[in-house]
């Protein structure tokens, strides 16, 4: 079953003795449902990774970093997990995130999606969906609302959208909230 897009799965392992980009490794690319599941079954669950590691799933041709021309004007919907949620929720939420991307759950707004990242961190893990244009309010909000629904988050819970340009300057201002 062909996917709308070819996707690249990346792995980042923090090694401070090397420059950031040398710690980023392409695992594989796939463009069918079957190859997605084959990849998924052969890699470690996110919750089993060590702190400082990331997985990133991006459309083929987009590097999983702010500096990429398709990312630099964009931003991310950010889901921050409490420490105790690594074992109860992280793997399910990351799988739901990937299914939203490869299944094009955001319909025509899916073209705004660049990728998604899961960060494994001691202080609390994070999952984010990256979109290409932070000023495209209609798409950003649609993606955020659908994403939150697919994650099964409580209506009382909120997730925030941050522009990469703000994150890069260490600001954590939410541009949008759903």
């Amino acid at each position: 079953h062909p996917l709308q897009n070819r996707w690249a799965l990346w792995f980042f392992k923090n090694d401070s003795s090397r420059v950031w980009q040398d710690n980023l490794h392409l695992i594989t690319k796939f463009d069918t449902v079957e190859d997605f599941w084959s990849t998924y079954s052969h890699i470690q669950q996110a919750s089993k990774l060590s702190s400082g590691c990331d997985y990133a799933l991006f459309k083929d041709g987009i590097q999983p970093m702010w500096e990429d021309s398709r990312n630099k004007r964009g931003g991310r919907w950010l889901v921050s997990l409490a420490k105790h949620q690594r074992h109860s929720k992280l793997d399910r939420l990351w799988l739901e995130t990937m299914l939203c991307l490869i299944g094009e759950s955001f319909e025509e707004h899916s073209r705004e999606v660049c990728g998604a990242v899961v960060n494994i961190r001691t202080k609390g893990d994070k999952i984010s969906v990256w979109t290409q244009e932070a000023e495209n309010q209609a798409s950003v909000l649609h993606i955020g609302q659908v994403y939150k629904e697919h994650l099964g988050l409580s209506t009382k819970a909120t997730i925030g959208y941050q522009a990469h340009a703000d994150t890069a300057t260490k600001s954590t201002r939410n541009k949008f909230v759903v």
């Binding site: 062909p2 449902v33 997605f36 739901e96 094009e104 319909e107 697919h150």
Partner: peptide, 18 residues
């Protein structure tokens, strides 16, 4: 062109099919 959209249920079923 037409966008290829798969819902969660379909994707999960594909996981279990041989």
């Amino acid at each position: 062109g037409t966008r290829i959209i798969y819902d969660r249920k379909f994707l999960m079923e594909c996981r279990n099919s041989p």
